[in-house]
């Protein structure tokens, strides 16, 4: 479970202070398929970064899987992310010099998992995202949609508690978007993988099971369907 309470985030961008988040309380449970929705600049990325332990709030507390992440050192936090959170970013997620298979395997190597488990899991995940025939391709040899699918597979490889995806479909055409959503939804339903993703694409919003709308750094609405 992720619990974020009274989250404020202020950026000191030179002389101008930007209040990106102004008091957000949110709770995300295992198995959710949640969209964070809002116009550009509303604070979606900031919120995802904070609940994913990538950024620290100016005020407020974040507990991820019962850990108060404010209490972790920099290295502990990196390790915590490795073992508890899977990330999918908007683009250029993958390590350019590694093949699809190696990208998926990468986090498991960092986790020091044994070879057998790595191979088994990599194969399984690439199959789950429909890329079993692309395993030896480098990112620049794949389409944007394929790259995002590899990114999803990689995010799952470390067996995280949550997968956070910041506008994962922003750079995809509608077919690839639908395809990626299908895969995420199936993983959510069949494997009970928790997905939290931000978007402002109505077709993506329509498929979310819970929609949290933010505007001006505040939660405007939070509805579970």
């Amino acid at each position: 479970m992720i619990q974020a309470s009274n989250i404020h985030k202020t950026y000191n961008d030179g002389k101008v202070k930007v209040h990106a988040l102004r008091g957000i309380d949110v709770e995300i449970k295992e198995g959710e398929f949640t969209a964070i929705v809002g116009p550009s600049g509303s604070g979606k990325t900031t919120l995802l970064n904070i609940v994913g332990g990538l950024d620290t709030p100016t005020l407020g507390e974040v507990h991820i899987s019962d850990t108060n992440i404010a209490q972790l050192s920099e290295n502990e936090l990196i390790d915590f992310r490795l073992n508890h959170i899977g990330f999918v970013f908007q683009s250029y997620n993958l390590i350019p010099v590694l093949t699809a298979k190696e990208n998926v395997e990468f986090l498991m190597l960092l986790q020091k998992r044994d070879e057998e488990e790595r191979n088994e899991r990599t194969t399984k995940l690439l199959k789950a995202v429909g890329l079993e025939d692309q395993i030896n391709k480098k990112p620049n040899e794949m389409s944007g949609g394929q790259q995002q699918r590899v990114a999803v597979a990689r995010a799952l490889a470390s067996k995280p508690d949550f997968v956070l995806a910041d506008e994962p479909t922003a750079n995809l055409d509608s077919k690839s978007t639908a395809n990626l959503l299908d895969i995420m939804l199936r993983l959510n339903e069949e494997e009970n993988i928790t997905f939290v993703f931000s978007t402002h694409d109505q077709r993506v919003i329509d498929r979310a099971k819970r929609v949290i709308t933010v505007e001006d750094g505040k939660i405007l609405s939070d509805e579970t369907r």
Binding site: R81, L82, N83, I85, F87, F89, Y92, I95, P96, S158
Partner: peptide, 16 residues
């Protein structure tokens, strides 16, 4: 630095 940023974000320790 973007590339380094991704590596650190997904859980690679800075030392590595």
């Amino acid at each position: 630095s973007f590339e380094y940023g991704v590596l650190i974000a997904i859980g690679m320790e800075k030392n590595k």
